[in-house]
């Protein structure tokens, strides 16, 4: 069966600087792939390129068999890709409910259908603060809100950029449970991560990116077993 997301030979640059060099990756249906690597390796840029926020300068991106590279972000979102940025970017002036309504899209075939009530069941903390402005929430609550907001678009593929960054350990555990619950709903997920422990608890496969190139692509188990690989690309 063809993968849901298929990236092939992707290049991206900011001005003169080339950030991505021939990235090839794929995410299967119902699969969780962890894109790992140090700061500045190109994880976020890969996500943004898929989302159409950074224009690719070469290569192709297919979603469900359809070319999406060169399309605008809103079109890509409407095809069923949900993007959760690493810096959260909640609308601080808008309440929780309003934040959710910005993300709302019609139900989609082959994707779980989300309503605010279902999301409040998934993120019980948010249920208690429906009318609170996004700017008046803690970092962890904002992270939950960004994910919930993106889910309101009923995506088939979720791009999660460093979901555990800057969160307290107990919140990170809750985040891992959430991701597994979403996987249980049938969602495919591409997440970028530096925390091997966290990635290991949620992902089926892992890819390692370093200086804009893929250095490893295999099962999570294979990565866990290879100490030399981990030391070379992941240890700080």
């Amino acid at each position: 069966m063809e993968p849901l997301l298929d990236i092939s030979g992707l290049d991206a640059r900011y001005g003169q600087a080339q950030i991505l060099r021939g990235i090839s990756l794929s995410v299967g249906r119902g699969e969780v792939l962890a894109l790992m690597g140090r700061n500045g390796a190109g994880k976020s840029t890969t996500m943004k390129a898929v989302m159409g926020l950074v224009p690719p300068s070469g290569g192709t991106i297919r979603f469900d068999g359809r070319r999406i590279d060169g399309r605008e972000a809103f079109e890509i979102a409407r095809l069923g890709i949900g993007y959760v940025p690493e810096d959260r970017r909640v609308f601080s002036e808008l309440t929780v409910m309003e934040n959710l309504s910005v993300g709302q899209r019609p139900p989609r075939q082959g994707a779980p259908h989300w309503t605010p009530e279902r999301l409040f069941a998934l993120f019980p903390n948010l249920a208690a603060m429906r009318d609170r402005p996004g700017g008046a929430m803690s970092g962890g609550e904002q992270q939950m809100l960004t994910i919930a907001r993106t889910l309101m678009g009923n995506p088939r593929l979720l791009l999660l950029d460093e979901p555990s960054e800057g969160l307290a350990p107990v919140i990170v555990q809750a985040m891992a449970r959430t991701i597994l619950a979403l996987k249980g709903e049938g969602l495919s997920i591409l997440l970028s991560e530096q925390n091997l422990h966290f990635a290991g608890s949620v992902a089926d496969r892992a890819a390692i990116i370093e200086k804009g190139e893929i250095r490893f692509d295999g099962t999570m188990a294979a990565l866990k077993a290879d100490a030399a690989l981990r030391a070379q690309y992941l240890s700080v």
């Binding site: 926020l53 809103f74 940025p85 309003e98 309504s101």
Partner: peptide
Amino acid sequence: TLVRAATQDREMVGALGVD
């Protein structure tokens, strides 16, 4: 709501599927 959201972060509104 969309106008207020776009006033703060246009790109994010686009990434959520709003033209």
